[in-house]
Design a protein around this nucleic acid. Sequence first.
DNA 1: TAGAAGTTAGTACCAGGTTCTAAAAGCCTT
DNA 2: AAGGCTTTTAGAACCTGGTACTAACTTCTA
Lengths: 218, 218
Amino acid sequence: MSFKRQFIIRRFAETEGAISVLHKEEIGIERLPKRQRQQKLVELIDENPFVTDRELTRRLKVSIQTIRLDRMELGIPELRERMKLMAERSYDQVRSLAAEEVIGDIIDLQLDRSGISIFEIREEHVFSRTQIARGHHIFAQANSLAVAVINDEIALTASADLRFVRPIHLGEKCIAKAYVRTSPGKAWRAKVEVLSYVGEEMVFQGNFIIYRSDDKNR
Amino acid sequence: MSFKRQFIIRRFAETEGAISVLHKEEIGIERLPKRQRQQKLVELIDENPFVTDRELTRRLKVSIQTIRLDRMELGIPELRERMKLMAERSYDQVRSLAAEEVIGDIIDLQLDRSGISIFEIREEHVFSRTQIARGHHIFAQANSLAVAVINDEIALTASADLRFVRPIHLGEKCIAKAYVRTSPGKAWRAKVEVLSYVGEEMVFQGNFIIYRSDDKNR
DNA sequence: TAGAAGTTAGTACCAGGTTCTAAAAGCCTT
DNA sequence: AAGGCTTTTAGAACCTGGTACTAACTTCTA
């Protein structure tokens, strides 16, 4: 989740001894050995990516050149580059959020008959403690698909009946299959059954009643 | 949604006439009158906030000074400032997303008894065509609340029974009230009823069965 | 035709760096 | 104690993408 993970490869093996007592007392502040300082550097930038090198010199009590050498070694880009990366990331997010008309990718759709969508469970969908997907995401996939499969101007969920058969975990790909159960274009409410699978295993089942705007069928 | 709306106040009244034909032909490219150019400038920065002034000179066929005067007049910050703003915004978002353990704001919670949450329907929750909230957001609020109200290490939705009583529109505030129906701490599945209101009107009703991790109760 | 509005040019300066060279300081080993 | 290594510091030149300011030139308009 944190900033560093985007581009920092860390390997801090052993820690090292203290430094010259003489110099330590001359300067009057404790300076860390290289490894520890670099670790601290990563932490500082991680907790505030907007920090400048000059600020870091004050926090770590070394010269600005040392800070810059450290950033080099650790592969940490300069402040402006960090901000640019963050800005680009958020820009992409905005774009993809706007495109999120539907939860999950619909990979097959036969209007008024059936549909299939795939949804991968990621970090943001699970309880952090258990790594189990929150129910409403599973529902959102099924509901989106049920609405999409109805061939009408307007389609709204009227009611639903859900069974979460087994917990779904981080990383699993959830495949939802929707089947329209009523004859198309006649009733102004459609019955849609959605079954979700991980592999062969059924993990969720839902029966939806969808209101449709029988515009086209009159 | 777009970038400009963060800091640009626009008022483009009338458009103006064309420019000197003499000069036009000398240069060989059409240059816009001030107002139109500034409008175009806003559009260009809006569609790509990462554009430099130098690039803008190429697109608008005026000198870099003119670009900068225009940005001043329009109150558009320089590229680096724009990126910084976006980065800060996304940084805050990451923090708030991580905090999004629950959909809707829980304003009252009596564990194992009842709870209330408020959720305002915004742009991103509605069908753009009809301005009606997608069902899964309403469900998400109810489900989050039902899970939150259960006083257990782990609580998972096992099944649910939903009725979307009437459509909920953009801007409406949806107030969900959850009641635990089974005696607390005994059964390892709790029954929770959630009723959602807009004002006095009931708009959604759901009956949830929640699995609980009877850790605490053994 | 004068003056205002609009446009362009140029210089000095800024933050927050990179790149490179070089020297000093600290540490370890023989 | 000296040599050789790593580490740290220093400094100068240069970079991008600007701001701030002065000055002049062009165009429109009254």
